[in-house]
Write a protein that binds this DNA or RNA. Structure first.
Lengths: 286, 286
DNA sequence: CTATCTTTGTGCACGCGTTCACAAAGACAT
DNA sequence: ATGTCTTTGTGAACGCGTGCACAAAGATAG
């Protein structure tokens, strides 16, 4: 998963569709599209729910926000539902998208086929590196950052994708917004601050992995002891660690007055320059 | 956001840390790491919260689940908190990870630096294409799928990343699980079914973009009319559609008996082979 | 030692989301 | 036309997450 929403004061749902439901509509749409391709005429809420990996009651309630599109005793008409959900999501219109930061990730995104098939169209690829300019990626010539504003205006772009290093993300976001973009998908590991009315969604692999690690640790049963409860046996693992040697050593629990010089964290980082840690998007451009 | 959680019966939090809190810990950790590198000794909940992009009350409540690590009137000791959160997330130990599917995305992931600096280590890159075998990606030689089980066993891998096309995702997941993997990060646009006790997290760019499109549509105020209210003027847009011509035509609302031959969806898909629509991960491998 | 000031930790209330369970609606058979 | 059977749509209860607001805790000055 990408990671949660961002900003936007909870009272966001314009007409009444809950955010949680909106987030599931693409899931339903995907499942329905698959059924459509297999020429299945109708599905029950039960079948569709299991295909989408959700609870059938939840699915029915979700659909109830869109209207009564089902037929009792039969189920839902696949084609009709595909259309209704597409329309509700705004996928029946063309969405020109600009991708900023054509590194490894940006290139991967540009190549993504699911883009076009869902109403999205890559209007331009932008990179700050002059050496990239003109290079074709996914059949589209990369343009220099200078062209950003012009491209946005000419194509009426309202959705931008940021795949730059963290340091560039905020400036890029500012320029996108200034040029008229009102929705941003951010792959850089930074908190973007944007004016009211601009939507930001964040995707961060690093966070997803850390969440997995948390649950993994719990499963192995061996959650490290409380850190303060057993002051004598704490460091055991960390001290000897070679490759396993972990980034952080346990500082003293007592707080008052401890200057940075005493900070053990400075000794970690196996070879990365400090400051470069989260500097690149989860999926890093070259 | 990558997309929500998956499976796992809500009563998951082992000792008492809410899932929502766990999902935010990496955010705090990133902000704290940045402070640590700037040698800032302490932060208030207010400062840290704004750096992480959350509410300060929420942050304090989150930390309260970990214990009382703050000092009233002063704030939190940065180094100590970095350690505590790292430990809680399980980042003080080494997590060997295997990446399956070395396309565009898989390669981008392998290159990601934030991996290693957080306790994750790429143990192996696996691809089904024999031509890939031996090729170095990010300094690691790609291995053929046949090696999957051996690699997992030898390295004690418990976390797997799937970056294959959708069709391969489930078989790969099955093999991962059978070999001992208990946490999976899935980039393929499919619902994976896994046995109890295996965690799956999903990242799907396509879904994120669709959610953005929804809000974007709402902002433009022009939400298309109700779709059933105007039965006469329905097809208008779709029939003539060129590039903008949308994937779905509005089928009749009446349900009963409509065979697949009448299904308009077969006429869409601008050039994609049917079935290839969501076939690749959000960020597609070559 | 006392007073003041800052900041944490948390009790409480509210709202959103999920789930259950069932009545209503329609299909289908007789 | 009537009855049965399937499946939807939703009212209601519950639980989690969020945010407010404040008391308790400690630092700091006098």
């Amino acid at each position: 998963m990408a990671t949660g929403r961002n900003h936007r004061p909870a009272t966001s749902r314009s007409r009444g569709i809950p955010d949680a439901t909106v987030a599931r509509l693409p899931l339903y749409l995907r499942a329905l599209t698959a059924l459509s391709e297999r020429s299945v005429p109708t599905v029950s809420s039960e079948e569709l729910a299991s295909a989408a990996g959700v609870n059938s009651a939840k699915l029915r309630k979700d659909f109830s926000y869109l209207g009564s599109y089902g037929t009792r005793g039969v189920g839902y008409d696949v084609e009709y539902l595909v259309y209704q959900i597409s329309r509700e999501l705004g996928l029946t219109q063309d969405w020109p998208v600009v991708i900023v930061g054509i590194g490894n990730l940006g290139a991967a995104l540009a190549n993504y086929g699911g883009f076009a098939s869902r109403g999205f169209r890559v209007a331009a690829l932008i990179d700050a590196d002059p050496a990239m300019a003109g290079k074709p990626v996914a059949g589209i010539a990369v343009q220099h950052s200078d062209e950003l504003e012009r491209v946005i205006e000419e194509n009426g772009v309202s959705i931008g994708v940021i795949a730059t290093p963290a340091a560039s993300a905020q400036p890029v976001a500012d320029r996108l917004v200034a040029a008229g973009v009102t929705s941003i998908l951010n792959f850089a590991p930074t908190v973007l601050s944007v004016p009211e009315g601009v939507d930001v969604r964040k995707v961060d692999l690093s966070i997803e992995l850390q969440i997995l690690a948390f649950h993994e640790q719990r499963k192995s049963g061996e959650l490290p002891d409380d850190g303060r409860a057993v002051p004598g046996t704490d460091i055991g693992e960390d001290a000897g660690g070679g490759v396993t040697g972990s980034p952080v050593a346990p500082p003293a629990a007592s707080v008052t007055k401890r200057t940075a010089s005493a900070a053990p964290a400075a000794t970690d980082r196996r070879g990365d320059e400090p400051g470069n840690d989260g500097d690149l998007p989860a999926v890093m451009p070259a």
